[in-house]
Nucleic acid binder design. Sequence first.
DNA 1: TTTGAAAATGCAACCGATTGCATAAAAAAT
DNA 2: ATTTTTTATGCAATCGGTTGCATTTTCAAA
Lengths: 364, 364
Amino acid sequence: MHKKYFLPRLYGVDYLRTTMPEYREITIYDIARELAISPATVSRALNNHPAVKKATRKKIQDLARQLGYRSNTFASNLRKKNTHTIGVIVPRLSSYFMSTVIAGMEQVARAEGYNLIISQSSESMIKEADNVDTMFNSRVDGLLVSLSYETDTLAHFEPFFKKGIPLIFFDRIREHKQCMGIVIDNQKAAYDATKHLLDNGYRRIMHIGGNPISHVYAERVKGYKKALGDYKIPVDPKLVLTRNMSEQAGVDAAEHILKMKPRPDAVFSANDACAIYCMLTLKKAGLRIPEDIAFAGFNNDPMSKVVEPGLTTIDYPGYAMGEAAATQLINQLTGISVMQATNIIILRSELIIRGSSAKKKRKS
Amino acid sequence: MHKKYFLPRLYGVDYLRTTMPEYREITIYDIARELAISPATVSRALNNHPAVKKATRKKIQDLARQLGYRSNTFASNLRKKNTHTIGVIVPRLSSYFMSTVIAGMEQVARAEGYNLIISQSSESMIKEADNVDTMFNSRVDGLLVSLSYETDTLAHFEPFFKKGIPLIFFDRIREHKQCMGIVIDNQKAAYDATKHLLDNGYRRIMHIGGNPISHVYAERVKGYKKALGDYKIPVDPKLVLTRNMSEQAGVDAAEHILKMKPRPDAVFSANDACAIYCMLTLKKAGLRIPEDIAFAGFNNDPMSKVVEPGLTTIDYPGYAMGEAAATQLINQLTGISVMQATNIIILRSELIIRGSSAKKKRKS
DNA sequence: TTTGAAAATGCAACCGATTGCATAAAAAAT
DNA sequence: ATTTTTTATGCAATCGGTTGCATTTTCAAA
């Protein structure tokens, strides 16, 4: 649509392409000619079709190997109408968690002969919709999506639903009858983290969470509240902050905490970055961790292991999530598994206890 | 090559594909029929070919839009023999730096209408070769590569060189007459970091570096040595460690340091992870940073900002590197820039000074 | 040896866009 | 009004596999 033409007089001349010393690709026709058989048989042999005699098949495959034959994906896709390509849309590529997820997907996809096309929404719904569009146009066989922060509708995925192209959400999911979701049990994880703080003697626990239109954050608040409930502690709205979970948000939260009259004695943050920056800011202000205020985060980011004290957090199985998502999608594509009615896969997460939440000393 | 067949009696039945409520794609033929013109003209109009009358073109494009026409990439690629796809091979996706690089590439590629296919070599040359192969078979238009730790030959890239498919190395590069490399000036950056330590009064500076068959690490040692040279300090081989730069390597290095009789008074590590784990281990052993031993790292990993004290390091422009690599490649593909003889692009990096290298107090 | 079913192979029509060349239409020159 | 040039369009071949159906080959049963 937006090609440039600066052709002087002749049309068809391909000025833009560097001409190379003609390097003809081997096609099935070459093999067919060589063996004096039909291209159809060659095609079938190369695809291990059972209707080809073993001997013929071997002869063909051997020659193919010898000649360095490479199947032309385009011809094949054109005819078969599938691409062996999986689209991945994530809010942001440059995070430890996300890159781990993608590493897992890549692993599985490659092993199964699929390619990954990756794009990022930069947490913008507009961009997300744009990416979805591109993926649709690229005719991906399936889509793996972690929703942007802003996304509050799935309308832009309609083309996929309509066409029945498999779509799987992971991590930042939204429920939809036509697609599977892969998550950890955020509620339980948050519950565990909160309960751990409670068990260790903390009572005024603040929660810093993200926008609850996101499933992930909504569940985490729930878990937090549930744990408090189990301890018969009423939820104090002043102790529940909703922020964008950035580093800056952590700093801001710290400043907010410093101004509170009865300060919380612990903070459970819905991610590590926010927890860490909050913690460090408070530390700088003279508070001791965990004596004055304990901390728990979420994600097990590499950072959480190197701050002092180490941050208690939830280990979030990124690699496994990527593997699971890709595996499920490929199973759907190959018909091994068909979509069930409600289909959410929950991965095991784990509470990692570090110094930031050590048992509270007496008092309280 | 490895498809499964469990067909009972009939061959051609497509058991594997979920049948959907027939959703015919619009093709140029549909448009042509509708407007009673030839498909050739439609094709040209959609590509903004100048030989189509403005009015006709508009009519065609409008109808295309209205019908929701989507160009079939496979047909197009099959005919045109190019894919608008860029292959990316990296040692490891799950690092902050690498994901940042890829974010940069993705940005540029998408804007220019290219797709990215990404794969990881897991630092293994075998896997790298395997990935190169897959990329070749996928007929990527070009390749962006950061070499694995093990890679000591470029033989597996031969098919690309032979066929004249543009190949650009970034970060972990090796020189080759046929391809461009994009790096930071590792030597200068290392020089700057070392000089900074020297300027601040440190004299027995240890260097922890990676395998010097890698350009990156070789340059960093050079910079380190050069800075010492400028200060007329002889290089003490006992102070130059070669490790695999993992977290564990940092811990090991720390244990090594603790056993040394005249201990170094500063460490310049070729990456942050190693520096940080070394630093923390020493800290645990009772050494004070930077009073007893100062530190400088390399990469400006998010971790370096949250350890205490903050780690002095080199800011490594991942995003910019990704953008640059993708831009260069696309320019080569579109013929805007042709490969020069020797072509290395050097990106600006920056020394970030934090607490781990504060000026040495008197003495020495 | 004949016959019939099963197993292999071939034929030819796709898939949808691109493009060299020929031709038709429009504009300019004579 | 006629010829020449320029500009638009169409024709038809091509890209390389895939696959329904027809045809041939093989091989065991009669």
